[in-house]
Design a protein around this nucleic acid. Sequence first.
DNA 1: CTGCACCCTTGAAACGATTCATCGTTTCGG
DNA 2: CCGAAACGATGAATCGTTTCAAGGGTGCAG
Lengths: 361, 361
Amino acid sequence: MDASSERDGSSIKEVARQAGVSLGTVSNVLNRPEVVSEPTRQRVIEAIQKLGYVRNDSARQLRAGHSRTIAIVVLDVANPFFTDVVRGAEEAIDAAGAVAVVCNSGESAARERRHLDLLEEQRVKGVLITPVDDGRDSRLEQLVRRGTPVVLVDRGSGQRNRCSVAVDDVLGGQLAGAHLRELGHRRVAFVGGPIGIPQVADRRRGFAGIFPGDGEELRIVDTPNLSVAAGRRAGEEIADLPPADRPTAVFCANDLLALGVLQEMTLRGVRVPRDVAIVGYDDIDFAAAAAVPLSSIRQPREQLGRTAAQLLLEEANDPAHHEHRHVVFKPELVVRESTVRSPVPRRRARHAAISEVRPPP
Amino acid sequence: MDASSERDGSSIKEVARQAGVSLGTVSNVLNRPEVVSEPTRQRVIEAIQKLGYVRNDSARQLRAGHSRTIAIVVLDVANPFFTDVVRGAEEAIDAAGAVAVVCNSGESAARERRHLDLLEEQRVKGVLITPVDDGRDSRLEQLVRRGTPVVLVDRGSGQRNRCSVAVDDVLGGQLAGAHLRELGHRRVAFVGGPIGIPQVADRRRGFAGIFPGDGEELRIVDTPNLSVAAGRRAGEEIADLPPADRPTAVFCANDLLALGVLQEMTLRGVRVPRDVAIVGYDDIDFAAAAAVPLSSIRQPREQLGRTAAQLLLEEANDPAHHEHRHVVFKPELVVRESTVRSPVPRRRARHAAISEVRPPP
DNA sequence: CTGCACCCTTGAAACGATTCATCGTTTCGG
DNA sequence: CCGAAACGATGAATCGTTTCAAGGGTGCAG
């Protein structure tokens, strides 16, 4: 309503004119208020408000050489695992006074590339990324070479030129396999894909390592991605097998797939866990709340994000003294009703299972 | 490995020198390749690759006056409702060749403000936002005044100076109320908050309008946010009531709350729906997969995002001819077992309920 | 051979904020 | 009262890109 607040931006120059001071002084008020005298500062501040001046970040960045935003590039925003990681990371980034933006690659290399291109053009302060491929990707390499701090999330890397924060996925697969084997399962399936995603490959490897013996059979059900829908399709495939060939247990590369498989089993009258046991991965909150609470491999999701962000900030704030580190967390098995029909009465069983949902202290 | 790809950015100037042409020519190769002759173009391209040149977006933006990214500001990245909206929006933004970044306000006005400040400084191409408050917020107003296209998502607005895309939340509340009333419930509760969030207020209003009569009682359980954890706390409060006073049905402002309430009920031996019926809101995918599949009010989540993005792009690409529009979708009731113990055998009931998860054609 | 298009290419002028050497005023100790 | 230091304010130079008027060739028509 104020006639003087123009539709489009006033520059620092106009503020200077309005306040009757020089360019440099306005800039000082903005960036080092302590060096300018009180009355002058007041006049400048008034002028800024009167004109509705908003700093042009492009110009500032051009001069400064880099931006203040940190990008978090995730495989899939719709996957609760990643949103929890994001929340952890945001917490740390926020605390450091920086700003986080989230980019979604949607498991598409092309989209990831477009985002990375733009992020590099924007000279972002740093990038937290779970890459679509193995992270040896030349695009990422280029970003690192230019000097942009990059931290790999949920992905170990032998790379010496960047930090990484990961969870031991091979161990996770082993935990799932050992659990099922101990329950007596000998004919099992692994559901997940594409195999190009390292997490998928590692979990499968760990799992497969547990079932090498005679009379044991491991069926691989490949999926085009890690969504509930893909899980349902995999579930169909498994449910359609003649019961004699059908695996008695399924290990899914993540909980979304597991939920999909579970839905399809229930739908087709295959009982879980009696006919088929299911183990998921990630232990997202919804896993415990499912129709049949899911056994799953828990990862420290928020901690993963927080740690990654801290490493990134450390590198960004003092590149000279920074030493790249590779943090690896250990996953843990959470047993619920999708693998073990609890021996205690159902009410109590429910109790125990559902209280699992509460975040660890 | 290439010694000439410097650690830090080479500018267009160095490319020009390397290729033996002028600044302007390099710029032309980048932006209007058709005006420069083939051999020259080749030389420039080679120089660019040799130097590993990456355009500096700040400088480009400074000149152009605005950026090419579109920001999506959501209330909560961890809420599947919003991630589905984001996916819809990204689809449209992607198709238009623009780039989307997601900012999470986490239901915090301060964080929203920080994001908006930075986005305005960055002169983004446009903003899709579900504001924390009523959207009449002066911060947003200022953004619009400056000429930045802004579309309100999941929020109607009487505002004439921007578009909005919303779902009729009052109607949604009414649908929930009518459903429960028809089932014979007379003592009911509304779970949600903070009441400052317009969606919460509208849903509650629609719901409350159905229970005004004698002998009817509406209890309001206020929550600090819309998470599963808050739902659990509300669930405790309700479960702890003496059965004679306890509402026989609960309507939650979103599905996360409903899942929390459901978990707490099960945990405390309150049977759903026999002792307490529950209706959620949003119909996120996980609602159908819950221990007791949730009745919910479905919103066209991806369509909401897609439509919002289209309106934004329309305005951004041709501000002169753009007329602001307010699109309002209608929600619909999805009935599942959390309100109606299905009369058909359980196996079949499950079947019907769970197939609800499939996306509408 | 001249004049005229036409095509490329050129270089200088923005864009807006920050920095920094410099300059003019005060202040204060001696 | 002098000189030096302290303090504030100044404005030109700079960041890297895009744009655009102007210039230099080349080929073609007259």
